[in-house]
């Protein structure tokens, strides 16, 4: 399997993502600069976290209109896997790969902490390494992670088993106290219709070694490699 990471001015977790993909792949992913209009032939594109274009205008809005993103979108429609983490989730949502929008956190503050994450489906190449209902510990670090969509879209996401992760308590309980940003229906990550695009706010790439205090993010990258290769 070949993977690429798209780097924008202001991206800042591209090396964290690189470490995670390198660990899973056994070799380094290709780093693609945002001005490149042609994307190398890869099986997976990861759009990393950070503050692309300083979060100016609206998180992810400027990056979503970059030439490389048009190419990412076109390939995703042909089945290439795409994962957007944090700012990457905001970008691919702005670009229309996923429905909904990421609003400012309900308490208006940046939040960095480990959260409980309940796996809502194992039916995707991103989550097949987990069991449905499994509770993971993964960090979040964002200011605008409050997922919002209209009720019809949300019902559709649920009916089509497209909610990948929800914020939860230690035993998997859903509760406003365990939701770090006020997201609708505690949504932390979602899939597209074809199930080849995942967007999520938490950072599985920061939970892949014992030093991180959790290695629960590892299975995501490993299952992805297995499923795609």
């Amino acid at each position: 399997m070949k993977a690429a990471i798209v780097v924008f001015p202001g991206s800042n977790r591209e090396n964290d993502a690189k470490a995670a993909l390198t660990q899973a792949l056994g070799r380094e992913p290709i780093m693609v600069w945002h001005r490149d209009t042609s994307l190398p032939k890869v099986d997976l594109v990861l759009v990393p976290g950070g503050f692309s274009y300083g979060d100016y205008l609206r998180c992810g809005a400027i990056a979503a209109n970059s030439p490389v993103l048009r190419e990412v979108k076109a390939r995703s429609e042909q089945g290439m896997a795409v994962i957007g983490v944090c700012n990457g989730f905001q970008i691919i949502t702005e670009a229309g790969l996923l429905p909904g929008v990421l609003l400012r956190n309900a308490n208006l503050k940046f939040v960095c902490r480990n959260v409980g994450l309940r796996v809502e489906t194992s039916n995707s190449r991103f989550t097949s390494g987990y069991k449905k209902g499994q509770v993971l510990s993964i960090p979040v670090a964002h200011h605008d992670g409050n997922y919002f969509a209209d009720p019809k879209t949300l019902d559709e996401l649920e009916a089509e088993d497209r909610i990948a992760f929800r914020y939860c308590g230690p035993e998997g309980r859903l509760d406003a106290n365990y939701n770090p940003n006020g997201s609708t229906r505690h949504i932390a990550g979602i899939l597209n219709k074809k199930r080849n695009v995942l967007g999520l706010m938490p950072h599985p790439e920061n939970a892949i070694e014992p030093i991180h205090g959790s290695t629960d993010g590892k299975a995501l990258f490993h299952s992805l490699v297995e499923a795609v290769s």
Binding site: N12, N15, D16, A19, F110, C112, R113, A141, H203
Partner: peptide, 25 residues
């Protein structure tokens, strides 16, 4: 205070805020 700071980016934070000293790999 420190939950408003990203203390994990770069992936090398071995000891987070709240201890005697922070440790970064």
């Amino acid at each position: 205070v420190w939950e408003q700071y990203d203390h994990l980016v770069m992936g090398h934070t071995a000891q987070r805020p709240g201890g005697d000293a922070a440790v970064v790999r």
